[in-house]
């Protein structure tokens, strides 16, 4: 083991994780289109490859070959940089997410003891990608989109963090592996039902997905922050959005659904499978949500965030703290 230098191990691990994550992104997109189609009585993509399985490849080819436009009024450097910021932040979180555990160690690129803080730090940077993209585009619809993004992120990030703090109090650690271990007997979504609910809602809002996709509300803002983007750069935003979806699914699995812990003692199935099933369910929920609920009105979005979610999250946190203090 010592023959292999640490940096090489990290590189190999990163490569594997990136490959898996990108593949997951590609097929989660196809999965979304299929599920949405079925829910809307359509067959969905079915022309590229058997059952449309090669659709992601076709989409990628299309994105690559489309012309990359920069508007005359745009700030050229920031305009070109913004998608990379978004993508960097989305991908960075996978560096510390543990997928499973084996006797040899934890399945992750790097195990950080303040893992959950790292995740929040990175996802907060992600909003810069969107805000800068909208601002640098130099036209009004993207600017409106980016203003919305900023306001929405700040409003919902508070509630999200509060809902997670409940879990941290229960687990007594900020290490993701530690949190999973703490759920060996009881998954945290049971004691933290309210927190779980808040996390579900805020996670959707944080990833700008329907019904919280006001940032790119096409009926109002054409394309929102990415109106001016095309080709590969638009594709990067696309990837970032789905990466974020996967990230929050993984985090939800780790924090509330017991990570790779098997339910009902079904330990003969490997932990990674459980992890994937739980994450997949969460992804499906995302899509289901999108197919079911209409988009929020902006003022209601803000009112809901500040007047409902934040008080409830605060109460939940105080109650959890009180109970823990009483028990110990």
């Amino acid at each position: 083991m010592n023959a292999v230098p640490l940096w090489l191990i990290v590189v190999i691990k990163s490569a594997i994780v990136l490959f898996v994550v990108i593949t997951t992104f590609a097929y989660s997109m196809l999965f979304e289109r299929k599920v949405m189609a079925w829910m809307q009585l359509r067959p969905g993509p079915n022309r590229v490859g058997p059952w449309g399985l090669l659709q992601p490849a076709a989409d990628a080819a299309k994105m690559l070959f489309k012309e990359d436009l920069t508007p005359k009024t745009a700030d050229p450097v920031i305009y070109r940089l913004a998608p990379f910021i978004a993508l960097f932040a989305a991908m960075g979180t996978f560096a510390i997410i543990p997928f499973s555990e084996s006797p040899a160690g934890v399945w992750s690129v790097g195990d950080v003891n303040a893992g959950i803080l790292f995740v929040f730090a990175l996802t907060s940077i992600g909003v810069y990608g969107i805000s800068l993209a909208g601002w640098a585009s130099g036209s009004k619809f993207p600017l409106l989109g980016s203003v919305r993004a900023t306001a929405q992120m700040i409003s919902y990030e508070l509630s999200m963090t509060m809902s997670v703090v409940g879990v941290l109090i229960l687990a007594g650690t900020t290490s993701l592996v530690g949190i999973v271990h703490a759920q060996y007997r009881l998954w945290f979504f049971i004691p933290q039902l309210v927190g779980f609910g808040i996390y579900l809602i805020t996670a959707v809002a944080e990833t700008n997905r329907a019904p919280f996709d006001l940032v790119e509300a096409e009926t109002e803002l054409v394309g929102g922050f990415h109106t001016e983007y095309s080709g590969l750069r638009f594709g990067l935003f696309f990837i970032a959005e789905y990466m974020n979806m996967i990230t929050v699914s993984c985090i939800a699995t780790l924090l509330f659904l017991g990570g790779w812990n098997a339910p009902f003692g079904l330990t003969f199935i490997p932990g990674i499978v459980w992890f994937l099933i739980k994450g997949g369910l969460f992804l499906f929920f995302y899509i289901w949500l999108r197919a079911t609920l209409p988009r929020f009105r902006y003022d209601r979005l803000m009112a809901f965030g500040w007047k409902v979610l934040l008080p409830v999250a605060t109460l939940n946190l105080m109650a959890t703290a009180a109970v823990i203090a009483a028990v110990r």
């Binding site: 079925w38 009585l41 289901w288």
Partner: peptide, 10 residues
């Protein structure tokens, strides 16, 4: 409702 439509013949 939306879940139910998943299994309806298209």
């Amino acid at each position: 409702t939306t879940f139910g439509y998943l299994f309806v013949k298209k």
